[in-house]
Design a protein around this nucleic acid. Structure first.
Lengths: 174, 174
DNA sequence: CTATATCCGGATATGTAGTATCCGGGTTAT
DNA sequence: ATAACCCGGATACTACATATCCGGATATAG
């Protein structure tokens, strides 16, 4: 049981996207350099997010990505499912129907208890992920992150972003 | 995010082990044929279960596997961890510490909110799996499985098992 | 209109899970 | 005592998923 690296990257990228002004776009390459991850592979994750309707792509010069909806309306689960795919982690291969002791397939009305227990666990897993939104993660940046870190990130991004409709907003709620 | 097939097989095997008399042993090859799965790979999963102390191997003629403890003292989580490994599904690569905006590593005292949320979800996932025991799965066989299926399985196993200390017990609680 | 910067999709490598086969060590029934 | 049987580990091979790279399409800025 393993989660791909793309999930972590996508979540970090969505977090910075949520911290920027709503209409500010940021190229995939800048996101990659910012996080120190290979830009080609991150681009693929961003495409998956785009297909899922989580981010919106703006082509052409000074284009890039931005969140497609409000950060509070996007849960971590949405991002995970978009990147990792919607299939459940546990695949029931209906092993009961194989082997010498199998009976007619039509008689297997209820799923076996094993698959049921697995899917139950996966359900609470998803519910927990669905309870946290990108907005929560963004808010946490103000409280949990070193101010020096934040400042350093802001000036680095400001240099590298095209002339936005609004400049990068420093948190004002302090 | 994907769980290996071995998890399913191991759970099914442990369930039939739990349905048998406590001292009855079954060879790995019989378990494989019973479920219609490749015996070589199932043997690997059984070894993992043995190392984890979930099943006990009995060598020699008429040997095989049996549960190492009572079925009620073995949770689904135990089996999953034994087969799949104890590592968490989400690996935080501390992407914050890379890239141009990183500060001194010592300043990262708290784990990032992303990893925290992921681990929280994984924790409830494991709690849910830990709440169901092999004993529960065995009990469910009596209620949820077609009687014809059960009978067919019993006679097939009886033919193939060496002279046990006690014969295969048909459920008596009906 | 041209050039640049960006997204998008297919093609390529690398790694991990799954499969099959073999031999040695140890234990039990005959 | 002997032979049959079973686990345990090592090895080699295949298939699939993950990770990576590169060229084409497209829209904007000047």
């Amino acid at each position: 049981m393993r989660l791909g690296d793309g999930v972590e990257w996508a979540l970090h990228c969505c977090t910075v996207l949520g911290a920027l002004p709503p209409e500010q776009t940021i190229p995939s390459s800048v996101l990659a350099e910012f996080h120190g991850v290979p830009s080609a592979y991150l681009a693929k994750q961003m495409q998956a997010l785009s297909r899922a309707g989580i981010v919106q792509s703006v082509p052409g010069r000074n284009g890039g990505y931005k969140l497609a909806r409000a950060a509070d309306d996007i849960s971590i689960l949405d991002v995970v499912l978009a990147v990792e795919g919607p299939e459940p982690a546990f695949r029931c291969t209906e092993v009961r129907q194989q082997g010498p002791s199998a009976v007619a397939p039509a008689r297997y009305v209820k799923p076996c208890g094993i698959a049921a227990a697995m899917w139950r666990a996966e359900e609470v897993f998803r519910q927990e992920l669905d309870a946290t939104t990108l907005g929560d993660l963004v808010s946490e940046l103000d409280t949990g992150v070193d101010p020096e870190q934040t400042e350093k990130a802001i000036i680095w991004l400001s240099q590298r972003l095209g002339p936005a409709t609004t400049p990068v907003n420093t948190p004002e709620k302090s």
